[in-house]
């Protein structure tokens, strides 16, 4: 009996790492550019389909396809910020919201036209393999995906910690005027940040195809999921996004197991409301000054 519980929790943790990676992208964009990416989940779904196509057409494993997809998403994000979105930085939230809702609508429906409304499973050859660790039975794909997600997160943490550009971006997030005064090219850093945010979601989407079927309607659901995680974890806190991703992953898994899979996100929303009320800055967020 206990082993079932343990299995559920472990599965939740592994899925939660993917959620965390996806939310990380949103957190980075929100924390630095102060822009609400309401098309985040839609980008994740586009990445899922990209990985799906690469696997079906060229047999490229999503774990490897993740790299070119993340790179492509970085370029797209950089270009998007430079051209379209930059004009909306600092504008009222509802204007940003409409712009990105526009982007989201275009993305989801483009996917819908190309692939149709039905769920597309990737059917990886090792999809049904699993590891036996004592009483635990863990899916191989989930372990691979989770390890890959962790690797991307680690790379990202390293980037922000140890590179010049990463430090400069953090400076932008902390003190925009100060950053501009010391001569940082804020616009370029914003574009890089948006690119990184999308690269995260590109990687997360590619990995997601290993454990979930691609459906266009997942887009808005993932957007909401990413927002929930970011707010629970604390805006602008990278570690917070990961921790909250795990929390939501586990909560979804438990709710799906105990009650009904279709009711799992109710718990995420309840968790969100509780955090908003009790700790509005999020679990690991900084207290507002």
């Amino acid at each position: 009996m206990l082993s079932i519980w343990l299995n559920v929790v472990v599965q939740g943790i592994l899925t939660g790492l993917l959620y965390g990676l996806m939310a990380l992208g949103l957190s980075v964009i929100f924390g630095v550019v102060r822009l609400v990416n309401f098309a985040h989940g839609e980008f994740a779904v586009v990445a899922m389909y990209a990985a799906f196509v690469l696997f079906r057409a060229f047999g490229l494993d999503p774990l490897i396809a993740m790299l070119p997809i993340a790179l492509a998403f970085f370029v797209v994000g950089f270009a998007l910020q430079r051209t379209l979105i930059n004009a909306f930085v600092g504008r009222p939230e509802h204007e940003q919201f409409i712009l990105l809702v526009g982007v989201a609508i275009v993305l989801v429906n483009a996917v819908l036209i190309v692939f149709g409304p039905d769920a597309q499973p990737a059917n990886l050859p090792y999809a049904f393999d699993s590891y036996m660790i004592g009483p635990l039975l863990v899916d191989k794909v989930r372990v691979y995906a989770a390890v890959a997600a962790l690797a991307v997160c680690a790379a990202l943490f390293g980037f922000f910690r140890f590179t010049r550009t990463g430090t400069a971006i953090r400076a932008c997030a902390d003190n925009l005027v100060g950053a501009a005064v010391v001569g940082l090219d804020v616009r370029k850093l914003y574009a890089i940040t948006f690119g990184i945010g999308l690269a995260c979601v590109g990687a997360a989407g590619s990995l997601m195809i290993t454990i979930a079927d691609a459906v266009p309607s997942l887009g808005p659901a993932y957007t909401l999921l990413a927002f929930t995680i970011v707010i629970i974890g604390g805006l602008g806190s990278m570690a917070g996004a990961l921790v909250a991703g795990l929390l939501i992953g586990v909560s979804e898994a438990l709710a799906g197991f105990l009650i009904a899979p279709s009711m799992k996100s109710m718990f995420s929303f309840a968790l969100l409301v509780a955090v908003l009320v009790l700790r509005p800055q999020g679990l690991l967020g900084k207290k507002p000054a």
Partner: peptide
């Protein structure tokens, strides 16, 4: 295609908010 209309809609939405916010 079922999504074609929506794509135009999304583009027009972006254009409107870009031009007359």
């Amino acid at each position: 295609a079922p999504g074609a209309k929506a794509i135009f809609f999304g583009l027009i939405l972006m254009a409107i908010i870009y031009l007359v916010p």
